[in-house]
């Protein structure tokens, strides 16, 4: 029986989809069987980041409605044998995500995969609550700024109230993934400090992902960051997060501004 993970945040644009793809690909490179599931019905993106947008035939809603079998909807990644994608529907109504249907799909996936990673849409409405409902583990993606932190706090509250685990009196294991961390801005004091975010949210830290152009480049190529350039700082941070998720003890490194002395003087763009 595999584990169901929800990647969630409340706020949009913080890096849920990027992180889903990156962690999914990182776990798959360790030889584990992974499926990434897009719950963003109507605004799907995970297929693009995974580079599978031209291969979508059936989607999650088709499976829930019984119009396709689960095996027909799953798309196997061309680069990694153990990585699969279950896309969302771009045209259907999100109300078609029924509680029973989602439960059936997640249960079936957990039987066949080591990791079922659900990419949650932004917000706190039906889509996000459906994505988190059957999760065993939650990755709360947060940017080091106040609005993102407050939205994450709200989502953590929902994870403790509206999931199957919570209703059975158990707890969803929660991890904080701090993304788009900009060392230069952190040093200048323009961003919330890591300690402040941890103090406010009081859940364990899974990793700190530095802000990087690698992420944008990788998404445009349709490649998860952990497949595009395995040695980049961002990819390394995601690999470390994936290791921690599997229970390995990897020390967390706060990214620092590594530009040279001259880089600091000449490396900045004019405003």
């Amino acid at each position: 029986m595999g584990k169901a993970i929800v990647v969630t945040s409340g706020k949009g644009g913080v890096g849920k989809t990027t992180s889903t793809a990156a962690i999914g690909a990182a776990l798959a490179q360790r030889g584990e069987k992974v499926v990434v599931v897009d719950f963003d019905v109507g605004l799907r993106n995970l297929d693009l980041v995974m580079g599978a947008e031209r291969r979508v035939v059936y989607d999650l809603i088709n499976v829930i409605q019984g119009e396709a079998k689960l095996a027909q909807a799953l798309i196997r990644d061309k680069r990694l044998e153990t990585l699969y994608l279950l896309p969302a529907s771009q045209t259907r109504d999100k109300d078609k995500l029924t509680q029973e249907g989602v439960e059936e799909v997640i249960t079936a996936l957990k039987k066949n995969f080591d990791w079922v990673i659900c990419d949650s849409p932004a917000g706190i409405e039906r889509g996000p609550t459906m994505a988190m409902r059957h999760a065993d583990v939650a990755i709360v993606v947060t940017n080091p700024e106040v609005s993102s932190v407050r939205d994450s706090d709200r989502i953590i509250g929902l994870l403790d109230a509206k999931t199957v685990k919570a209703e059975q009196g158990e707890r969803v294991e929660k991890h904080l993934l701090l993304t788009r961390y900009d060392p230069a801005r952190a040093e200048a004091g323009d961003m919330l400090q890591v300690d402040d975010v941890l103090e406010i949210l009081s859940i364990p830290l899974l990793g700190i992902i530095p802000e990087s152009t690698d992420v944008l480049r990788a998404s445009n190529l349709g490649t998860p960051v952990t497949l595009a350039d395995k040695h980049s700082e961002t990819a390394q941070a995601y690999f470390a997060a994936a290791k921690r998720l599997s229970g390995e003890n990897v020390p967390i490194v706060v990214p620092t501004d590594r530009r040279s002395f001259f880089g600091k003087f000449f490396g900045r763009k004019a405003a």
Binding site: I124, V146, R150, D151, D153, R154, I156, G157, L158, D160, E199, I200, S202
Partner: peptide, 26 residues
């Protein structure tokens, strides 16, 4: 004994003791 999260509302007729923080928006 847990933090009160954003969006949560804790109501009680008597005294309330919170061992933890009360978040912005709670």
């Amino acid at each position: 004994t847990e933090p009160v999260r954003s969006g949560q509302s804790l109501m009680f007729e008597g005294d309330i003791t919170v061992v933890g923080s009360v978040a912005s928006g709670a």
